[in-house]
Simulated assay, not measured.
Amino acid sequence: MTGVTIVGFDADDTLWHNERFFQDTQARFTALLADHAEPDHLAERLLAAEKRNIGRYGYGIKGFVLSMIETAIEVTDRNVPAEVIERLLDAGREMLAHPIELLPHAREAVESVAASHRVVLITKGDLLDQERKLAQSGLGDLFDGVEIVSEKTPARYAEIFARHGDGPGHGMMVGNSMRSDVVPMIEAGGWGVHVPHDLAWDLEHAETPVSAPRYRVLDDLGGLAWLIAQVG
């Protein structure tokens, strides 16, 4: 057996918008603490808190809000007003309730690939929030499987693509994150397809595997069916 038989799709900022809500909330966070820290310094402190807390809280909105609160406590020397904490919690609730907006060609791409291949959604983040977004997206019935994981690693991809299909050697992972979607899938022996998004979280950057024979890049999901046909 040769060729691609199973395709994995990332969710956030691959199928629907996500990062822009984080950046909008971070702008509100910056404004709330403007009297205590310069924007660049505050952004550095928040990013450091997020990186430090991934192992505790995982990925997603809840961990982001807790990291904002932690940073606010730090930069105000524990004198952050209760109103600021309240407004950060409100911002988190708004993010958790925000309606889903599909990216261009998302539905057509999943439908087209699902007609001839097994398709699996593979995403990081909070379980309840990711389930909510998938339900609201209207794409749930198109997938043969859904995997909500704490990290995307070569070993995790190998296990998922073996359990849902013919192994990573016959698999393709499609996503906007070089660090999470592309590089580890290629290291697992599969195809890694990068579909860049205009906005990207700093912690998702990684060196582009330009020399890897199974690395591909698409401007948007509209070219995915053609690419799969080309690589077999």
Results as ranks from 00 to 15, higher is better:
Gln23Gly: 07
Leu103Glu: 08
Leu221Ser: 12
Asp144Tyr: 10
His197Cys: 14
Ala158Glu: 00
Leu46Cys: 03
Asp144Thr: 13
Pro154Gln: 02
Gly189His: 01
Asp181Asn: 09
Ser211Pro: 01
His41Gln: 05
Gln26Trp: 05
Pro168Ala: 15
Trp191Ile: 14
Arg78Met: 02
Ala158Cys: 02
Ile148Val: 15
Arg107Cys: 11
Asp166Val: 08
Gln23Tyr: 10
His36Val: 03
Ala43Ile: 04
Val113Met: 12
Gly138Cys: 08
Val119Ser: 08
Glu151Tyr: 08
Leu89Ala: 02
Thr30Ser: 10
Arg156Asn: 05
Asp144Gly: 15
Glu86Tyr: 00
Lys152Thr: 05
Glu44Gln: 08
Asn176Ala: 15
Ala48His: 04
Gly3Asn: 10
Val183Asp: 04
His170Gly: 09
Leu42Asp: 06
Asn53Ser: 03
Phe143Gln: 12
Trp16Tyr: 06
Pro39Asn: 08
Gly140Phe: 06
Gly232Asn: 12
Val84Trp: 00
Arg107Gly: 07
Ser116Trp: 11
Glu131Val: 09
Gln26Ala: 09
His17Trp: 06
Asp198Val: 15
Ala229Glu: 14
Asp90Thr: 02
His170Trp: 10
Leu33Lys: 01
Val210Leu: 13
Asn79Leu: 01
Val182Ala: 09
Val65Ile: 04
Gln23Glu: 14
Gln130Cys: 06
Trp16Ser: 11
Leu103Ser: 08
Ser67Asp: 02
Ala43Ser: 11
Thr208Lys: 13
Asp144Asn: 15
His41Gly: 13
Phe9Lys: 09
Thr30Asn: 09
Phe143Asn: 06
Ala43Asp: 03
Asn176Gln: 10
Ala106Tyr: 13
Ser211Val: 08
Leu227His: 15
Ser150Met: 13
Thr71Tyr: 00
Val4Trp: 14
Glu151Cys: 03
Gly92Glu: 01
Glu111Tyr: 06
Ser211His: 15
Pro104Cys: 10
Leu227Gln: 15
Asn176Arg: 13
Thr76Met: 00
Lys124Ser: 11
Asp141Lys: 08
Thr14Gly: 06
Leu139Tyr: 09
Ala155Trp: 02
Asn79Phe: 01
Ala158Pro: 01
Gly58Pro: 02
Ala91Trp: 02
Tyr215Phe: 15
Glu147Trp: 05
Glu151Arg: 15
Ala43Met: 04
Glu19Tyr: 09
Ser67Cys: 05
Phe143Gly: 12
Gly145Tyr: 09
Leu127Asp: 07
Ser211Ala: 14
